[in-house]
Simulated assay, not measured.
Amino acid sequence: MNIPDVRLRDVTLRDGLQLTGGLMPTDEKVRLVRELLALGVTDIEIGSMARPDLVPPLANTLEVVAALTPEELAHCWVWVATPRNVERAVAAGVTRMQYCLSVSDAHNRANIGRSTEDSMAALPLALDIAEAAGAELQLCLATSFTCPFEGPVDPERTLALVRDPRAERCSDTVICDTLGQADPRQVAHLVGEAARARPGHDVVFHGHDTWGMGVANALAAVEAGASVIDGALGGLGGCPFAPGAAGNTSTEDLLFALKPSWLTPDAFGELVRMGDRVTAELGERSTSRAAAGAHSEARAFEWILPR
Rank of each mutant, 00 (worst) to 15 (best):
D53G: 07
G214V: 07
S144C: 08
T82D: 02
R88E: 14
E72V: 06
L123A: 05
P57T: 11
V222K: 10
N2K: 03
Q18L: 11
A245L: 03
V78P: 07
D43R: 14
E284A: 15
T12S: 15
G40P: 04
V55K: 07
T42Q: 15
Q98R: 13
A182E: 06
P265L: 12
V174I: 14
V30M: 10
A126L: 04
A81Y: 00
E302V: 14
A298G: 06
A66M: 08
A220L: 10
G247M: 10
R285A: 13
F145W: 10
D183A: 01
M274P: 01
G113S: 12
E72F: 12
L54E: 12
R307W: 09
P57M: 13
T146N: 14
S286W: 12
S104G: 14
R299H: 13
E252I: 01
A67L: 06
A89E: 07
R185K: 11
T61R: 04
F205M: 11
P4V: 10
T264H: 07
V162C: 12
V174D: 06
P124A: 11
V204N: 02
Q18D: 13
T61C: 05
G16K: 04
S102M: 08
D43K: 09
L127S: 00
T26D: 08
L36M: 13
A294S: 13
D27L: 03
A59D: 12
L17N: 08
G40D: 10
T287W: 14
T264M: 07
P52N: 07
G238D: 12
P4I: 11
H189P: 00
C76T: 12
R196T: 05
L233G: 08
T20K: 02
K29R: 15
H208F: 10
A66E: 15
R163N: 13
A292P: 01
F205C: 09
P155S: 07
L127M: 13
L123N: 04
C147T: 02
A298L: 15
G214L: 07
G238T: 08
A81L: 02
V94C: 14
